Amino acid sequence: MPTIVEFRAYRVALHRGRRPESALVCLTAEDGTVGWGESALLDGETWNDLARRLGPALPGLDWERPEDLGGLAALGGPRATAAVEIAAWDLWGRAHQVPVAHALGGTRTSVVTGARIPCQQHLDGLPSLVNRYIGSGQTRVTLEVRPGWDVEPLRVVRQAYPALALQIDGACSYTDSPEHLTALETLDDYGLVAIERPFAELAPHAVLQRSVHAAVAPDIGDLDALDAAISMDAGRALSLRVSRLGGLTTARSAHDRAYAAGWDVWCGGSGVFGIGKAASVALASLPGCTLPSDITEFVGGPEYLTPPLRAHGGVVAVPLTQPGLGHDIDGPRLIRLATDQLHFATR
């Protein structure tokens, strides 16, 4: 594999000075091949990791495949590591003229997509919002819920759409108190596909899974946590979040273990410029990704990928004829949006 001679990172927002922001990483090999990665920039630590540890470590690094970069996890948090590792997979795929989906072991030519709806201020507009996603072809909707905002919104949506596949995401806001467990069991009565991230701790997921029909999906941040969840029967579904897991290599391993355990799997995208979502499309082509994936959420603004990453009728194609992530990336336009940037190169 050609040596990486240049590392660049860009702090970019769709609207200058406003969230959401992404960290974009661009790696250049000695033969001129370029690979791009992206991760949502949710805190200052991610950018600090890129600036102080990961960026200086990349130029001149000897590697053959992206899997060889596992040691980078010791230099930064999962989001920073994921942005770098996605760029490495893209670079490797372009250098070898191989789609990342194939390199990961993907078998699907298309991925079914779903929509996520954040907690709303009012119930009145919720059915029409869900209808908009259904009209665009989405076959599954995930409602974000919190204690006190759960039963009523779910009841309203289920009443309006009796046959719609529904999931909920608790964002770790529930506890194992009897009141919260009863509330989650009540939500299960609405015919849910999955209950995602109800608790911050792993043990209550096992208690909940024994009492509900829906698949429980704990928040998994590393392979040890996944192994523990499987051994405890603390769920039956896994949301693969590339940035949460520190990159495509670990995410693929998590998929393999969950798939072998009989769990359902789906993928979530990260970032707002399409590069992170393109990585999630490649990951969602793996055979165990049986549930609709959250990879095409609309965030507004122009497209920075060619061809654009878009769902048609609730399905997004897996790019299998182009190398790397399968999209040409408009680097100059992205760079013009940068509010900060890093540059490290071999001497």
Rank of each mutant, 00 (worst) to 15 (best):
L223W: 02
A237F: 01
D219S: 15
S270V: 15
A88W: 02
D340W: 00
L342R: 10
L123I: 05
L337N: 02
G221Q: 13
A163S: 13
S136A: 14
V100F: 08
A82P: 06
E45G: 15
V281D: 11
D227Y: 12
V216Y: 08
T113M: 05
V316C: 06
G105K: 08
L320H: 11
A160K: 07
G170N: 01
I134H: 09
A13F: 03
A260T: 13
A163L: 12
P162V: 03
A51V: 06
Q209T: 08
L283W: 10
A317W: 00
L166I: 01
I86K: 04
C172S: 14
L184T: 05
C26A: 13
W63N: 06
A103Q: 01
P127I: 06
D328K: 08
V216I: 14
A171R: 14
Q138I: 07
L286R: 02
S173F: 00
Q322T: 14
G76V: 05
E297Q: 13
L41M: 01
G170Q: 00
H255I: 00
T346A: 11
L41N: 01
V156Q: 08
P302S: 12
L14M: 13
E179N: 09
P78Y: 10
P307W: 07
H102E: 15
Y133T: 07
R146M: 04
V112T: 14
L238Y: 06
T306Y: 12
A228E: 12
A88P: 05
H122G: 13
R244I: 00
A203I: 08
D169H: 09
L202I: 07
D233E: 14
G55W: 02
P308F: 01
A101R: 04
P59E: 09
I168Y: 01
A40H: 11
V112M: 07
S136L: 15
A80M: 04
T306S: 14
H312R: 15
A9Y: 02
L91A: 03
N48S: 15
V157Q: 04
L123G: 03
T250Q: 13
I335H: 13
G221A: 13
W47G: 06
Y161L: 10
A317Y: 00
V299P: 03
G301K: 07
